[in-house]
Amino acid sequence: MAEAKGVLLPAYVVADESGSMAPYQRELGDGVASLCEGLRAEPMVAAKLRLAVLGFSDDVQVRLAVADMRTETTVPRLVIRGVTNYRALFEDLLVRIPGDVKWLRGEGYRVHRPVVFLLSDGQPTDGSSWHAPHAELTDRDRTPTAPNIIACGLGDARAQTMVDVATRPEFAFLAKSGTDVGRAISEFFHSLTMSLVASGHALNSANPQLVVNRPDQFTMAIDEVGR
């Protein structure tokens, strides 16, 4: 392959903006801000990442387009609205991720397999209609840029749903029963920052594994399935 300006990991933080998240808007805002600050404090890692923040509800709205966090000065703001439509989310990612990869390559970068960190507090309101676009998104034959998906559920989210959304069982997490949701949101963003920093270290080495840290207050969702 031709000489590249760098090798990047596109990372998408996808946050549920549905109405049930309204009591936790402050924690969501603080979490996004701490993520941005955490990456700015690690410029060597941030140089190898491109971060996007998406809010999803009835549709997907871009709160931060794929950005270099070393130079990005705005802090994205999540907006509470509507219901929890998973189909809209996965249909959006099916278009967005290949487009972003193409754009980054056009800018002269080589690109690692993208990663999506999903935070949702409820069951999808669109039944099972999201299964088809999700299956297409995560099928590496049909979607060559298929992302790794890490799914974190809290509130009414069910373990089985998180396992179905995540691309590997160990990438699915569920807030422990009785956990304060606001605190769980804070832990999600803390863990997300740690995961991105560790992955940024590992991806350009001879050990390219995606590092996923389980957030405190969360359990592996696969352990909760069937309980």
């Binding site: 690109v111 690692h112 840029t145 991806l203 350009n204 050990n207 390219p208």
Partner: peptide, 9 residues
């Protein structure tokens, strides 16, 4: 088959 790179060894 993809526009991606991997360091897997």
């Amino acid at each position: 088959g993809t526009p991606l790179v991997s360091n897997e060894v």
